[in-house]
Amino acid sequence: MLSFILRRIAVVIPTFLGVTLLAFALIHMIPGDPVLVMMGERQIDPEFYASALKRLGLDQPLYVQYWHYLLNLLHGDFGTSIVSNEPVIREFLTLFPATLELSLCAMIFACLLGLPAGMLAATRRGTIVDHVTMGSALTGYSMPIFWWGLILIMLFSVSLGWTPVSGRISLEYDIPPVTGFMLIDTLLSGEEGAFKSAAHHLILPAIVLGTIPMAVIARMTRSAMLEVLREDYIRTARAKGLSRGRIVIVHALRNALMPVVTVIGLQIGTLLAGAVLTETIFSWPGIGKWLIDSISRRDYPVVQGGILLIATMVISVNLLVDILYGVINPRIRHAR
């Protein structure tokens, strides 16, 4: 098992290198630079402009800048924000729990609805249940996130007044960050009503962000289940006299989970991309909103560092998925 994990990790290294290059190249391709953006419409004194570029190290050729960037990375230095003068990693770590909390809740929502929906559709194949479930899944999958978010806000926040429009918690609460997860921190703070307020704020963004993964999980679960239910060992399980429920949950689901877990892993990337939009719609103070703001400010170190850190997460999750395979499927664990 250990050598299996090590082999997987070795494969990941070139991916990281590619991500640094891509992040670096993309942000430098956008016209303008941080100094110009900060100056805005005003006239710039060319001398000041040159000295500002020099101070930020932006006067050097791109390959030199990239080289310095890589060297710093090797020392664990993700750079310092040009705008706030804070280390990128510190800003990231402050904001990341908000995104993680949102993504986790979105994923939990997606799995809680997607897995049973897929199983239900598979076991009731061809019936009205199947068609309705898969129809809804397709609708959910095709939903543009920004539009879906606005519709839900209009309905639940504006018309019905059930949930707040934006933010993580009502302004009346001042919750000291302990874990960074608002749901946990509000419980720790012991303030009355704080947890409820946080949960209220979380519910809509989580649904919006979780809709596409839910649809994908439901469809994947259905097709994987259908395939597995045709297997010989399902016939064996039935010939043993096992109940329908036990056959589906114990014998079929475990084997069907393989492709589903892959998809859940792949959805983490979609989730983070979706988080950028969702956080913008709901003014959710996470890394998605942070990245968007930084791009418009041409805050190179933040964008590069932020992208790299997000990529690190996506890669780690995929690594975790690979390792999970080994746990679920003994054949992969034992393969050389």
Partner: peptide, 25 residues
């Protein structure tokens, strides 16, 4: 449900392809 108490207990069956008839997990 009643039949399942007989199937696998009093009437048992084995199949052609044993390799795929066992659950790999």
């Amino acid at each position: 449900a009643q039949k399942r108490q007989i199937i696998g207990k009093d009437i048992a069956m084995i199949f052609q392809d044993a390799l795929t008839s066992l659950n790999p997990a």
